[in-house]
Nucleic acid binder design. Structure first.
Lengths: 238, 238
DNA sequence: CTATTATACCGACCGACGGTCTATTATTCA
DNA sequence: TGAATAATAGACCGTCGGTCGGTATAATAG
């Protein structure tokens, strides 16, 4: 095999890219290291030069994922003069829109990330994302409590519930997608929209807000993701 | 090796027992099939006579776990003349007491079941338990909605939240246990009690009940589990 | 009480896996 | 230019889950 030497950081990112693709499509366990290095066109020695183990590769992947997600919401956090509720809703909207704006991509992600195969990968990403997001949420909630917008005795707890609901929403969507009986798609969509409404009202009441204050997603949010697969687009090639 | 023939169901249960012990202590991935069969004193052929795969063993384990847990709450479901709130609280109390009554055992379970190693095992048990418990919760909530005790437009959603909170409680306890800085144990216990209170109030408000209606655990619940490890008892054998 | 079939069990063996190791080629810098 | 280091290759290793041909025991029929 011809020896190709690349810029180290480039090679590392390349490995992460191929690993991510394979882990998502086949699952962490089922995608072997040999698959990864074959896909990346790299020898084992090269791989182990960059990562200490397959486990470390997973960790790096989760970290990158969380880092990218965090970068997407930084501007909202730094936006001055927003009241806590607006900030919280903005954060929710941002993370929602990041998925909606490329709806079919979002669908693909849901379909793959929440498969049983991807339990390990999902858990790692979830962990990394939680570690990144929770402090931000806590900070916002604390500010809200201080200025009287929110009412709670356990900001960390509320932040956790927020994350739980976010994950649960995705989980429920993913389950409906994989179940995928096209016949009762409408029923599934309605059930999911209802679930989102429930989460919103629950959060309103937990935080002592009037019903309708928190907005996880406007009506149609679920439908947008769920119907994204109907138009697989003409571009099925790489 | 001498050939020992046992009653099939006994052998099967035995395999499940040894597998459970090993999966809990070492984790599903790290406990190899050879470990399991060695522990059970059985050949590979014997094992594959009872289970189609290691995966199937895990499935059977989760199923047994869920079945046992369900059996523990049947009497409350069948108790006549209880109003929905009492029934719901009874169910929560039952599942709590099942863990408290052997507090050190509960602690051991927490310590093992929620370790990262046990992600796979935990997920399977969780799945099986959810499948068993959710319908019961939904039924109770529906009854409550019909007779006006509860107010919600999404009983399934509320049931899901109940399960989420239950799991989250365990998860938080387990994290505090494994973190295990004895110094700030008191702080951790207080934080956890606060979390349980938050979940209770959240559920009250989601269901349109006065604060203090839902009781996940009486004050001291968390402390009882958390301090159980202080008395490892004299019996360390077996 | 046999003969025969079905069940429970054994353990050598297999391919694939994650990971290690030595060798070799490129890059860097004095 | 040449020595040191970084980057890459690929043969090799122990262990894993799983298979297979076979054997001992139990169940059943004649």
């Amino acid at each position: 095999m011809p020896r190709i030497i690349k810029h180290p950081e480039l090679r590392r990112e390349e490995l992460l890219d191929h690993a991510q693709a394979l882990f998502l499509t086949r699952g962490y366990d089922k995608a072997s290291l040999n698959d990864v290095i074959a896909s990346a066109g790299v020898s084992k020695g090269a791989f182990y030069h960059y990562f200490a183990s397959k486990e470390a590769l997973l960790e790096a992947l989760a970290e990158r994922f969380a880092r990218q997600a965090l970068a997407g919401v930084q501007n909202i956090l730094n936006a001055p003069g927003l009241d806590p509720l607006a900030r919280l809703n903005g954060l929710l909207a941002q993370s929602r829109q990041a998925k909606i704006e490329t709806a079919s991509e979002a669908w693909a992600l849901f379909e793959t990330l929440f498969r049983p195969d991807n339990l390990v990968l999902f858990h790692r990403i979830n962990l990394a994302a939680s570690a990144s997001f929770s402090p931000l949420l806590v900070k916002i909630i604390r500010e809200g409590v201080e200025d009287g917008t929110f009412k709670t005795f356990d900001p960390e707890g509320v932040a956790d519930i927020l994350m739980q609901f976010g994950m649960a929403t995705h989980d429920v969507i993913a389950k409906a997608i994989t179940a995928g009986g096209d016949a009762d798609m409408e029923v599934a969509i309605e059930a999911l929209e209802r679930r989102v409404r429930l989460y919103e009202i629950a959060l309103d009441r937990i935080l002592g807000l009037p019903d309708g204050s928190i907005r996880i997603g406007e009506p149609g949010y679920v439908r947008a993701v769920m119907t994204a697969r109907r138009k697989p687009k003409a571009d099925e090639a790489r």
